[in-house]
Design a protein around this nucleic acid. Structure first.
Lengths: 348, 348
DNA sequence: TCTTCGAATGACAGCGTTGCCAAACTGTAG
DNA sequence: CTACAGTTTGGCAACGCTGTCATTCGAAGA
């Protein structure tokens, strides 16, 4: 900065003022300083600046992974807003239990960011306490945190409406497939499971544990095993509600390659409206993923700018059920078929 | 830090030494300091520390977007390595031409990171010069940058081998669909296009411009238009080589919903080995995406640790063609069919 | 007992900014 | 020509750490 000052023939203070866009700099001086800065490829050292101001101009995102469609798009939304605000984006991806503990032990984000977005992360009470002790604004993304700023959808209600679609089609045995990851926590799941149960209750159907599965891994193997389990039930489901489209898409693939007709034999309902779902003809509960990221970033930004303001700290986004070809009325059961036609025990 | 020092009954210097893991601290003192730090949830201010050391312990990633499968997985790989090394990950997503210019103008990464990973970004000579002037180590990911550390695959050769598969099946009219984004640059494309052309030359086939398309957008609309163009050619291709699986998957969907049989009427070849490609039965050229990210991060790390060392600055990963069900020999043409059977001008 | 050495610790300057206050300059009114 | 307010600029301390050097301490050797 001293170099720039010398080149522009002004003091360091003036350079600082100019570069921060403060008003009390004459236009000519401003021009000279900006020119000098450009010529020297000068950029303010954020380290030094944040040492004084206490502001890092950085926002941290805590996420269980980066390679899912949902989080990729959410973070893309976050990134778009931060870019405009000239804030930097720091990503902490914490993918298993050990890392998780390490993160909350070391709390590397402390004092290295002005705010933190916690995405898809069911925090334990201790973890929340840790974060609170940080004194850093935390925005919860894709999850409702009572008393704390959060951006989310109504998971229970969304799942309920998805289920109603299946129930209205006539399904009575509906499996529920949760998404899990290696962090040891099932995100969003509890709420959606609640929606699932509420829908069953509403329809007067029993809750059958064997229809609710928790694949052990987000990818292939875990889902393959879950599908195997469903297909080998004495009384298999006529529909599967997967907690995310990524899981639903894999389930579709597995069932198809196993020769199970979709939706003839089994209907599939997803959640998210993945980029591929349209042409795969997957019925789904759509949520505005990128929007959620943007809103979260905006919220964080407004909290940073004015910590006192309590700008509608809860933003709830609507979801909508998009019926497509992967859902249809269930095939008539053996019993129903017998009832319909004349009783012919040994049909030829 | 003074608080920790007081609580542990030592000087600030000792706290600093302890927290940095320097050896000259007695075990008892170390224990006391660590305990005090934990109790106070103390974390070193990276701003202050980097002001002195000049090291930020941050690595920046420059990427054209975050919401593609390829980049999500690459960055996941980067993140995994950085986490272990206790380095922070800074993400700069630059998604269009204006942002791109702004980025290189303002160069926000300057002095805010110890190294930069440039992924899938064809830099102009001026942009490279700008980066060089930064004096920050830059690692090129997924692209070969002569004279600069880079991690990549042999795109030309990979495309060549993919094409050979199609040619060996008997295809003679093969379309090539590039991936594009809004940054105004087509990444990896030129090399893969070279492979495409080399394969044609090898097979003694002409290069037909109308078979090479550049969708204007990464997603739906652009690809829909490209497919429309191909289907409305006087002499449509019998195979399509898409530059990424994400594009290939969309093309498959569009063709299927247009009633075009795959691979009966048109074969599809992708690139990446996307998570869904296996069950979609998409033939593809697989590349180890996450591995690439890890290697790039390792490379950056080793350069930071020892700027003098020139640790095998180029890492080339192998790719492999994975034949699946989306490719098959082309349907016999009208001409061939006539030739095969007896000449019956008006077949009934 | 005295010296010497190494290990452990402390004191202090300084990293590159910003915030505050003082100073210089400009223009206007008395 | 002076006084004064407002605008623009400069000087300097301080932010929280680390690196360097000085100091203390205890143990080993003379």
């Amino acid at each position: 900065m001293a170099d720039v000052a010398e080149r522009a023939g002004v003091s360091v203070s003036t350079v600082s003022r100019t570069l921060r866009g403060l008003s009390s700099v004459s236009p000519q001086t401003r021009d000279r300083v900006e020119k000098a800065a450009r010529e020297l490829s000068f950029a303010v050292s954020r380290s030094a600046s944040s040492l004084v101001t206490g502001k890092t101009r950085r926002i941290a995102v805590l996420t269980p992974h980066l390679d899912s469609w949902f989080l990729g798009n959410t973070i893309a939304g976050v990134s778009a807003v931060l870019r405009e605000a000239e804030l930097d984006l720091l990503v902490y991806s914490v993918t298993d239990v050990a890392e998780r503990r390490a993160f909350f032990d070391r709390l590397p984000a402390r004092r290295n960011a002005d705010a933190m977005l916690v995405t898809c992360f069911d925090l334990t009470p201790e973890e929340r306490a840790r974060l609170d002790a940080l004194g850093m604004p935390v925005v919860f993304v894709s999850q409702h945190a009572p008393g704390r700023p959060s951006v989310y959808i109504d998971d229970a209600d969304s799942a309920l409406r998805g289920m109603r679609h299946l129930l209205n089609l006539g399904h009575r045995r509906i499996a529920f497939l949760q998404s899990s990851d290696n962090t040891g926590f099932y995100w969003s799941s509890q709420e959606r499971l609640t929606g699932y149960r509420n829908a069953l209750a509403e329809a007067g159907l029993p809750y059958d544990e064997e229809l609710v599965l928790y694949p052990v891994a987000r990818h292939r193997r875990g889902i393959r095993e879950a599908v195997g389990q469903l297909l080998s039930l004495r009384n298999p489901p006529t529909a599967v509600f997967a907690e995310s489209d990524e899981v639903a898409i894999e389930v579709m693939g597995l069932l198809r390659s196993a020769g199970v007709d979709i939706p003839g034999r089994i209907s599939i309902l997803g959640f998210d409206d993945h980029h591929f779902s349209e042409w795969l003809d997957l019925t789904t509960v759509a949520q505005p993923v990128e929007e959620i990221g943007r809103a979260a970033a905006e919220l964080a930004r407004s909290i940073i700018d004015d910590p006192e303001a309590d700008p509608a700290r809860h933003i709830v986004f609507p979801t909508r059920v998009i019926p497509r070809g992967s859902t249809a009325p269930p095939a008539p059961t053996e019993a129903a078929r017998r009832e319909a036609g004349p009783a012919r025990p040994h049909d030829i």
